[in-house]
Design a protein around this nucleic acid. Structure first.
Lengths: 182, 182
DNA sequence: ACCTGAACACCGTTCAAGT
DNA sequence: ACCTGAACACCGTTCAAGT
């Protein structure tokens, strides 16, 4: 029979995210995560494959927490909402967020976000290949900005300046989408 | 007196870059770098402060190797040249390049690249604040794309598709710059 | 079935010692 | 001045053992 599990994947990811948010990605060690759960490091291996799998889970967690825009918004509003939610998620988890740019965007949660954007672009009249291309450029620009911001590449810049940068970026992306419709 | 140094910062960075290119960033350990130079790990500490300093040196090395565009080119040509050189550097050092997005852009080599772009934008008639903003958005988009590409976020996409994506991105950035001149 | 304890091969870094 | 050897506190991961 065996006793009921004391820990599970969800609790492990909760603990890992809390440690990452508080003390940085380097502080997320198997030992530290286990300690926070009152268990030995080796106990984690029944619930995650290895450390890489744990970090993948963290990325997936961030993507899952990203609210998708309501479909009754206009295209522009939907794209702006996704972009702003991305930036807010980055601000909420600055130590984990940079990993988003470094993993293949083909996990379930990543696909959900991507498909929402591609669908919005399709509804607006772009053909499939163009919609897919715009989505790649859109996500690249927004992720690049959000990562730059939280990873400190824009250190020494006021919040107001970066907010204006972001608005300008959204406007430029809007124009890119518009001109792709021709 | 003491004997002449067997190693120096340059040789250490050469070795570290070679290891990173061949086997990934995780393979760049103090022990591995030292071994490649025929010394013990502890010998490195006379020439680099610590491991973080070594990685910073690697980033600086990449930026230093980036050719700056000849000033006789037009604005568009200069910006496209910087962007293409960035992408080529990423392709040449795919394991180290992602670090570029994660460090403050205020080292000497980073400033040289930035100033070249800001100067080009200034010559084209943008005021200082606007030129600085355009440079941030430009570098963010190009770095974001190059990092996405080498870190595997665009895995499963043909080279031809990504080349076309990049051309499209350059065109969108060109339009952003043009409209900023008003 | 789930977790522990002991162990292994590493890691970055320190310090005192050698030449 | 420069490098080594020994050591420390960690790290991810394995395996056999406990309940």
């Amino acid at each position: 029979m065996g006793r009921p599990a004391q820990i599970n994947r969800t609790r492990i990811l909760d603990a890992a995210l809390a440690i990452a948010d508080a003390d940085g990605l380097d502080a997320v060690t198997m030992h530290a995560v286990a300690k926070r759960l009152g268990v030995t490091a080796m106990a984690l291996y029944r619930h995650v494959e290895d450390k890489k799998d744990l970090l993948d889970g963290l990325v997936e967690r961030l993507l899952t927490s990203l609210p998708l825009p309501p479909p009754d918004l206009t295209l522009d509003e939907r794209l702006a909402a996704v972009a702003r939610n991305m930036r807010a998620t980055a601000a909420g988890h600055p130590n984990v967020f940079p990993l988003l740019l470094q993993r293949p965007a083909d996990t379930p949660a990543a696909l959900a976000v991507r498909d929402a954007v591609v669908a919005a672009l399709g509804e607006a009249g772009l053909d499939g290949a163009t919609a897919a291309r715009m989505e790649r450029l859109l996500s690249t620009a927004v992720l690049g900005f959000a990562v730059s911001e939280v990873a400190g590449r824009f250190a020494h810049h006021d919040r107001a300046v970066l907010d204006a940068d972001f608005d300008y970026l959204l406007e430029a992306l809007r124009r890119m989408i518009d001109s792709a419709g021709d």
